[in-house]
């Protein structure tokens, strides 16, 4: 069994789901935040010798057990607040934090591949400040705008060049397990995108580049997978099926 954690309206995820299932990731169970959080019984055991297990029963009776999970495509950036709407106001924030902690724990404890593992800065991978992305992109060998924060037209630069380039043609490169996937892109750029994924400690990463110059614009651990087409599906299939 493979799991896809995503919102019901996460069209890129559903797009990927149909293709991954066709390739053989079957059964692929799509779990929305609502299905996860309105489930009935969670058992998460962390044993003293390092083993762990997770099992929960969905409202429709389906049981999810870690022993049967062979891979997870995780696209939930955080626990959506509406799922604790049934609680009294004073308990909601507490409940959200508890849910977050639980998800971080069980996803991290799975032996199966998880793209992406949760971290403190986001359940499906870290969300970083534009300056941090710019620095990491530079380290990965991508061309970046000089990143300075200051007064436009004054002593310095726009605070985030990457957010003021709306009119640019953007090309999104999906990097999976350290490999930039775009057969039409120059190899060194592809490699740099892959390196950025490694530096960001994010197995699945979307890297936005200026289509004309190749300069780095932004990155996201929850990219639009459709941008990468079938090659990305192939790479995802390999990673999630353990064939990578």
């Amino acid at each position: 069994m493979w799991l896809l954690l995503c919102a019901a309206d996460d069209v890129p995820a559903l797009w990927a789901a149909t293709r991954l299932t066709a390739r053989g990731l079957d059964p692929l169970v799509v779990l929305t935040p609502e299905l996860l959080h309105y489930s009935f019984r969670w058992e998460h055991r962390l044993h003293s010798h390092g083993a762990s297990s997770i099992s929960f029963t969905l409202a429709d009776g389906r049981r999810i057990d870690s022993a049967a999970i062979r891979g997870v495509l995780n696209r939930l950036p955080f626990v959506p607040p509406h799922i604790v709407g049934r609680l009294v106001a004073a308990d909601r924030q507490y409940a959200l934090q508890e849910w977050t902690a639980l998800h971080m724990s069980w996803l991290s404890s799975l032996r199966a591949p998880v793209l992406n593992l949760p971290v403190m800065e986001g359940l499906c991978g870290a969300w970083r400040h534009p300056s941090e992305w710019a620095w990491l992109a530079g380290e990965a060998g991508l061309t970046t705008e000089v990143y300075q924060q200051g007064v436009p037209g004054g002593t310095a630069f726009p605070h985030a060049a990457i957010t003021t380039r709306g009119a640019a043609m953007v090309r999104t490169v999906i990097a999976i397990d350290g490999q930039g996937i775009d057969e039409h892109l120059a190899e060194d750029l592809c490699d740099s995108c892959g390196r950025l994924g490694v530096l960001a400690k994010t197995r699945l990463l979307g890297v936005d580049l200026d289509a004309r110059t190749g300069a780095f614009i932004g990155a996201s651990p929850r990219p639009d997978l459709r941008e990468g087409g079938e090659p990305v599906i192939e790479a995802l299939f390999s990673s999630l099926s353990g064939r990578a």
């Binding site: 019901a8 309206d9 069209v11 559903l14 797009w15 789901a17 149909t18 293709r19 066709a22 799509v30 929305t32 935040p33 609502e34 299905l35 309105y38 489930s39 009935f40 969905l58 409202a59 429709d60 049934r86 459709r226 087409g229």
Partner: peptide, 29 residues
């Protein structure tokens, strides 16, 4: 690009329906 495109809208509606049903179950149970 849309080769084999499934009924994503249908999937979306189905998932939303399942979520709503799950909430109903939870609330009423």
């Amino acid at each position: 690009a849309l080769t084999g495109e499934g009924d994503l809208g249908g999937m979306q509606q189905q998932l939303e329906g399942e979520g709503a049903a799950a909430k109903w179950e939870k609330d009423n149970t």
